[in-house]
Design a protein around this nucleic acid. Structure first.
Lengths: 211, 211
DNA sequence: GCTCAAAAGTGACCGCGGTCAATAACAAAT
DNA sequence: ATTTGTTATTGACCGCGGTCACTTTTGAGC
């Protein structure tokens, strides 16, 4: 289980490099699939925070050590699961018409906010992995952030926003405000206002030139 | 150790409420001081990330249970220690002349950035507590954020920045960008550029009206 | 089929954060 | 000095993430 180390496996390599050494055994794929399915079941039943590796392992019918042969640590599993959900959310977002103004942008971001707001733990994992954890490896969550950036840039390209700043910077700013607003949502003092309402003025001030 | 539960003790109550029930014993203060001193020593020697509760406890000469009678969990201790450092940094920042433009603001923020950049772990703890952890209790770190907000607002009041947005929102935006930039610093892909250089364009775009 | 080296899987074990029933230290009242 | 109710301290214990020396399985070459 070194050739398939998840450090470089983000979940969809056909792995046709059978020339070198030994190929991947089907067993491996099965086991990993079982682990992921088991994890998904647990999350479905009890949420992300309550997930225990032991539980996943027993549901998958493997030993504990096997788990850590497939995922460097529990966070790597979480990154997979949460990354998948973020990707699903982005799919949904991209399937809808391109937002054309600030209001529509805020509306379009709702699914993402809902996802990251559901559990504090999810948001924590997201933050921890948003900066690509440690050098070299880019995890699933970090990938979704790259994708998110691209989506935002595409939106901004065809939207009536300020042009004195590059689209890339504008998009990064949106991400910064999004995170800020979500963090505030978890703050005891500010959890009364709903997030879209809070996000709106930031994006308006950030994207639109002052009158 | 319920009346002095750290949930409500941020480190500097004289606790003159001796009328109700039982007063605080001097023993308590001594023990807490010893724990904090021991923790500080450990951090000094090995950094925040490497700190182990057992080590702190043995250095302080108390039992493990005592630690958790004084701090709800390890993070609470961290919040104290890191909060103290942030406050020290803010003291230094406030002691210097008020920055008058974006460049000076970025410069003034350097100590804070240095603090939060030194250890990834510190930044993680900061993020975790910046939203006041859980309802009701406001921890030391959350307090420093409030203070930081005030400092920023004071700066912006007398600075040549856009006025179409409230000073409060502008200040919160600065915080959002600061966090964004620090997060990027820990990202494998973007760690080559230094932070002031990166922060500058954001703040410029955020604070100054487009030409 | 048989061989054999590499890959996959196992589970006892460890480190560390956190708990709690029991105990000791304290201070006020008698 | 003794009792009494409260507060502070203790340390054995637990849960859970993670490790690793060892066993089992696999499949390419014979």
């Amino acid at each position: 289980m070194t050739a398939v180390n998840n450090k470089f496996d983000h979940g969809h390599e056909p792995w046709q490099t059978r020339g070198m050494k030994q190929p991947v055994q089907q067993r491996t794929l099965k086991t990993r699939a079982r682990l992921l399915a088991a994890a998904e079941e647990v999350v479905q039943a009890q949420g992300f925070e309550a997930l225990r590796v032991d539980q996943v392992v027993v549901r998958a019918g493997v030993a504990k050590g096997t788990f850590f042969a497939h995922f460097t640590d529990k966070d790597a599993l979480m990154s997979q699961l949460i990354g998948a959900r973020i990707n699903a959310a982005l799919d949904g977002i991209e399937a809808r018409p391109t937002p054309r103004d600030v209001d529509q942008i805020v509306q379009a971001l709702l699914p993402l906010m809902a996802l990251l707001t559901r559990e504090r733990y999810v948001f924590d994992v997201f933050l921890r992995h948003s900066g690509a954890a440690l050098a070299e490896e880019i995890g699933p969550i970090a990938e979704t952030i790259g994708r998110f950036q691209e989506v935002l840039e595409r939106w901004l390209d065809g939207a009536p926003v300020r042009r004195d700043v590059s689209v890339a910077v504008l998009a990064e700013g949106i991400q910064a405000f999004l995170i800020q607003v979500i963090a505030m949502h978890f703050c005891a003092l500010h959890s009364d206002i709903d997030m879209p309402t809070r996000l709106d003025p930031y994006l308006r001030a950030w994207l639109l030139p002052p009158a």
